[in-house]
């Protein structure tokens, strides 16, 4: 077993052991914190596909996170008010079923990523960052000014959505569901990185014109990566809204985009478990330091600075050694 695999195994063990202990010790709040970390991790695993594998510095991943959240909010609010989502040309009812909501979140985010990608991938570097940010802001302000779904105040859902066979209002059951999704997506992400597509994307990140000589279109590779990435972050958004039973434009804000990127950078860009480690550390700091000071983000800033300046490739890089060269 390589050192990185050992570090990953420890993280995985913690994700199972800590909530297990919390259940035994009757500390439901710890389970909720762990759920928050796992959902953030899922969002960051999504971003890591674009950022780590594709080299796409997207500062607009809150778009997908928020759209996922609103997919949940809109469907569930119509279901709880017994009003159809639309009646013409055909009737679409709201739903309280998680699988349907997840699928909707994934599809909506993927479509958004496709449209944003088609435009943003005409550029690169700092312009790409700016365009993704601009789209993020556009959708954020749209959500604020659209009163139908709460506008600035957001949208509350009274009862958590359901999953067949589970009582999702029991914290540990909802946690298990989120963890299972994270594991599935991690497995998918690992397979994707090793697939010919992932390898070509990796090569395209470093030298775009070189993949063209073997018949691959670097823009198309990156577009597919962005769509997959957005879809995963969208799924995380639906879970996050369900965790809070609340969705608001904050989920779409550019601070949210920044946070998702911070998870990836703290943990280690392009490392399989980097986003997971990053999200866990973020939630821990938020909880521990947040209790000490309202300005806990100052400390977060210092931690981030130390990690970036150490140049070791995030926490995973510090523990497991440098991975492959990464820009």
């Amino acid at each position: 077993m390589t050192r990185e695999a050992a570090v990953n195994a420890v993280i995985l063990l913690l994700l199972v052991a800590v909530p297990g202990w919390a259940l035994y010790a009757d500390e439901p709040f710890t389970i909720t914190l762990a759920t928050r970390a796992v959902i953030f991790a899922l969002a960051a695993v999504g971003l890591n596909i674009a950022l780590g594998l594709g080299g796409l510095v997207s500062l607009g991943h809150a778009v997908y996170f928020g759209l996922g959240g609103y997919a949940m909010g809109v469907l569930a609010s119509h279901a709880q008010n017994y009003t159809p989502l639309m009646e013409w040309p055909f009737v679409i009812e709201g739903t309280k079923s998680m699988p349907v909501i997840w699928l909707t979140a994934i599809v909506v985010s993927a479509i958004a990523a496709l449209l944003i990608g088609l435009l943003a991938l005409r550029t690169s570097g700092v312009y790409f960052i700016m365009i993704t940010l601009a789209f993020g802001q556009m959708i954020y302000f749209f959500a604020i000014s659209w009163p139908a779904y709460g506008g600035e105040d957001g949208l509350s859902i009274y009862v958590r959505n359901g999953f067949p066979g589970l009582n999702t209002l029991v914290p540990i059951q909802f946690y298990g569901l989120c963890l299972a999704l994270l594991l599935i997506v991690l497995l998918f992400s690992a397979l994707l990185a090793r697939s010919p597509f992932g390898l070509a994307l990796n090569a395209a990140r470093q030298v775009p014109h070189r993949v063209e000589t073997v018949g691959l279109d670097p823009v198309r590779l990156k577009l597919v990566a962005l769509v997959i990435s957005g879809a995963i972050t969208g799924l995380a958004g639906a879970l996050f809204a369900d965790l809070n039973r609340f969705v608001s434009p904050t989920m779409l804000s550019w601070q949210m985009s920044g946070e998702i990127m911070v998870f990836v950078i703290i943990g280690g860009v392009a490392r399989l478990f980097g986003p997971v480690a990053g999200a866990v550390i973020f939630v821990l700091l938020e909880h521990l330091l947040g209790g000490i000071s309202e300005y806990w983000q100052v400390f977060l800033g210092i931690v981030l600075l130390l990690i970036v300046l150490s140049g070791k490739g995030g926490v995973i890089g510090m523990l497991a050694g440098r991975g492959r060269a990464h820009d």
Binding site: H209, V211, E212, T213, V214, G215, L216, D217, P218
Partner: peptide, 8 residues
């Protein structure tokens, strides 16, 4: 044709 299409 773009480069990658020529290769294809």
């Amino acid at each position: 044709l773009p480069s990658h299409r020529a290769a294809r």
